[in-house]
Design a protein around this nucleic acid. Structure first.
Lengths: 241, 241
DNA sequence: CTTGCAGGTGACGTAACGTCATCTCATATA
DNA sequence: TATATGAGATGACGTTACGTCACCTGCAAG
């Protein structure tokens, strides 16, 4: 019966030897064999168990929960709770990301950072933090019924639009006409985007309007005026020449 | 000149007293005044600084970085690095989320958990972890050029479609006809979704095809067959009656 | 005089290891 | 044969941003 040393297992599964020793220490994964000198040897069964552990770890489950999962196998309950937890985390990181992007863009536009302004928006969307055990009482329906509104507006297309919107704002501020190199660039990018995901002017504008609500509502920054839509149309007209 | 005690500040900014003491301890925010008995008193200026700290903290910046940001003010560099870091984190959580959803769905379908199968997909998308200092060398262009592909397919619409796809798969497996209550439900939800985001059959199918590549590619599970598209059409036809 | 409250200071605990420093044992080499 | 090397083992401390004791103090109310 083949047995593997810590080093071998570590290399195989691409984890550190320390990790294996730690798992032994907390009795998550105890090797089947131990030589007199203390060397650990892992059986095939052990490797299988390790496999499970790594999978569950990849779900960002805490090791303690993994341990109870491994034998008690009340999979579903715990996985659903975990799913809800992940969503919360995700939206938290998502908020951080969009705030960070906002700050970067503010710097880009060489505005002084107006802390009061940013402060507002941050405090507005402050995350009341829960622990994932809190979700434990929720029933399974949570999975199916739960909508994920905080992720709804973060596809690549939207981001591209936002970037363009910012650029156009900058142009307006600096009195740069749509009939310029910059305007032509913006226009052609708008057209490209529109070709990529839509096929008619109508739908582009529709998307535009959808996006338009975004920055004011979600980031609290850069409310977008009619001027910009006008500017956009002129850019595209100019770029089309 | 007004001065605030720890308790007052804590209540105002909705943080714990311990947090304030900790910030004092690590010299992140030292109150301007100190009574003989040791009581801390914060000035208006202190509150302003605290405000900045809380904002930066909401970007999930580590406190040490916040400290250096507060005076050295090399905002942009550090924010961009941080932005990249957040993206990495986000995609990591995203992966966890979709893996978790996959596992839950496997349980839903009452299949035995085939660890080997899941193992494959987990190992396939194993995150080589970097530290966010690694990004520090990247230039500013990273922000503009960086695409965000790992988020591109996680809007609400897509998720709804995926849920419906799973349900239809389940129906096919259990020989439930599109001309049934279940089928009618699915059909009307499909129509609703389609009305919500598109206005024609053509575009619905387009989106469908786009989504179709998803599960096989991203989750590695449940490759979707022509049968399902057929099933979908019949559901919608039935629901329309 | 006691009670309560609002403040203070250590000190330990947390999750999942990374990173020493130090030790043992077996093998390969000079 | 003496020794250098490598692969293993075992503590023990460090990490982050605080939460949570235990215990002390000063001040006003009952």
């Amino acid at each position: 019966m083949k047995r593997w040393t810590t080093g071998e297992v570590a290399k195989q599964r691409n984890i550190s030897i320390r990790t294996l020793r730690y798992y032994d220490q907390i009795h998550l994964l105890t090797p089947s064999f131990r030589e007199d000198n203390g060397k650990r040897y892992y059986s095939e069964e052990d490797l299988f168990k390790l496999e499970k552990i790594l999978i569950l770890k990849s779900l960002s489950l805490p090791l303690e929960d993994i341990r109870s999962l491994l034998d008690k196998l009340s999979y579903k309950q715990i996985l659903i709770s975990h799913y809800n937890y992940l969503q919360e985390q995700l939206s938290k990181w998502q908020t951080s990301l969009s705030h960070t992007a906002s700050l970067i863009n503010m710097i880009d536009l060489e505005e002084a950072l107006s802390w009061e302004r940013v402060s507002e928006l941050v405090r507005h969307s402050q995350n009341r933090s829960k622990k994932w055990t809190d979700y434990f009482q929720e029933e399974e329906k949570a999975l199916l019924e739960k909508t994920i509104p905080n992720l709804s507006s973060n596809d690549e297309t939207t981001r591209q639009y936002i970037l363009l919107l910012r650029r156009m704002e900058w142009c307006l501020k600096h009195n740069i006409q749509p009939e310029s190199d910059e305007g032509s660039q913006i226009g052609s990018q708008l057209i490209e985007l529109s070709n990529e995901h839509f096929q008619g002017e109508t739908q582009l504008m529709e998307k535009f309007w959808e996006v338009r609500k975004l920055p004011a509502e979600e980031t609290g920054l850069y409310p977008i005026s009619e001027d910009i839509l006008d500017f956009a149309e002129r850019c595209m007209a100019y770029a089309a020449t």
